[in-house]
Amino acid sequence: MRVYRIAEQNIGIEALHDRVYFRCTAYETEGAPDFVVRTVPADIDRERERSAREDRLEGRPVRAWSDEYLEELAIYRQIAEIMPTCDTFLFHGSAVAVDGLGYLFAAKSGTGKSTHARLWQQLLGDRFTYVNDDKPLVRVTGDGAVIYGTPYDGKHHLSNNIAVPLKAICLLQRGTENSIRRLSAREAFPRLMQQVYCPEDREAFARTMGLLQELTRQVRFYVLSCNMDIEAARVAFEGMVSSNS
């Protein structure tokens, strides 16, 4: 077993493939685990079935994944099932930091959230840092929300082992022009639900709902219609950051 510190928790991992450990290298710690996750071959089979089911649902050809990759998914799924007990949940989106404050872009797959994050990097240069381009963790307490880098950072592997206060979540939709507007928590909630990991365990799910409820009091929400031009980043940045600083 090796131990990794992710989002304030020491997580013991017992994996079948070395790649699972390799992925987490930047998070390794000497500490004792707060909890342990481990995989067996059946977990990999389940991930393969789940992925095939999703592909069929989306109407695309079933993709073939390596056992190593599927094991990584299985490990992160187990972590995500436990994390709500630590006031933390998994959010599918691209999380970035500007001047040490966190902003999260969410959208359906293929909309271009990673592309948009890259535009922020171009626009802001050294003021910009990736938190996690795909599956960050969000911790919600009465004092505010914090977004954490994790080893599970999408196909381009853009992440850092950092934690920053989460200030705003921006839902992206494609448009020909660039425009941003503030969303109420009511408007944002159904769309947030599509991006949050919903645990299979009822208790963990209920805790996740409670955390989301608290999150709606702590961060601002926006919807951005955007194209792929640098102007999209300028409009989003002006709307989310400059006008609130």
């Binding site: 109420s184 209920a206 409670g210 409820q213």
Partner: peptide, 16 residues
């Protein structure tokens, strides 16, 4: 299903 409230509106969300 789990009930949750956001700004005075209630949602029933399926689980399991």
């Amino acid at each position: 299903m789990i009930l949750t409230e956001i700004e005075g509106e209630w949602y029933a969300v399926p689980v399991g």
